[in-house]
Amino acid sequence: MSIETSPKQSWWNRLAHPGQFVIWTRPFILPLAILTAVLLALGVWFAFFNSPADYQMGDTVRIMYVHVPTAWLSQFVYATMAVSALGTLVWRHPMADVSMKAAAPLGAAFTAMALFTGALWGRPTWGTFWEWDGRMTSTLVMLFIYLGIVALWRAFDDQLRAARVVAIFTLVGAVNIPIIKFSVDWWSTLHQPSSVFRADGPTMPGSILTPLFIMFFAFTFLFATLQLLAMHTEVKRRRVMTLERRAARGEAA
């Protein structure tokens, strides 16, 4: 009779190994990239050639097909970072801070795109590029939080110490997510209340929901692809730093 002496590792523990994480997730990148490209092409085709003008917004509804997915990602990416921050502080998962660091510039870019497309939609619809209403202001605050997090990562040489500081900052900043979400209910605003995810179902017709959902998934898969790539790069960057320190010690000796 043989006795098993090595401890059984769960998938969670295996994913905690940076090298294993890279090996296990690398096969997902190409299929995700292809899926993203196909959905983006399909979404653009629907947006310009196979969707009607809205009865109120007219043709500017087509801006919604890029505005809504980028606005969704500005919050979803932050939620990903907040969960990763918990992973760093509570479970001390080695890949959690890698995920936090990889997501920050992506979130900043999607937030900037949401503000840009929102301004271009607002001018013909509301008569102004910008209004200091609850949702727009809280989204601008979110962009500054993202930029602050990117700067904070760069301010530290010791990335493990940086991870703890950034994780606390990220969790404090997470209070902005419900503010963005419920700003249209709490305050008087130019923005309309939720029109897709409602208890009584979406208020939009299928001809507008179809391109909206295609673009929604295209942008979400794009984030997943870039996030995985950026995480792999961060794992390699840390290996580079380890090797450089080792080389420096060798030279000093």
């Binding site: 007219g58 500017t60 087509r62 801006i63 900037a112 840009f116 497309t117 271009l120 001018r123």
Partner: peptide, 21 residues
């Protein structure tokens, strides 16, 4: 290409900006 109406420039710039980004 469909007719984008009087606000075509806003629609086109939104897509150009997003895809450049």
């Amino acid at each position: 290409m469909i007719e984008l109406g009087q606000h075509a420039q806003f629609i086109i710039w939104a897509y150009v900006g997003v895809f450049a980004g």
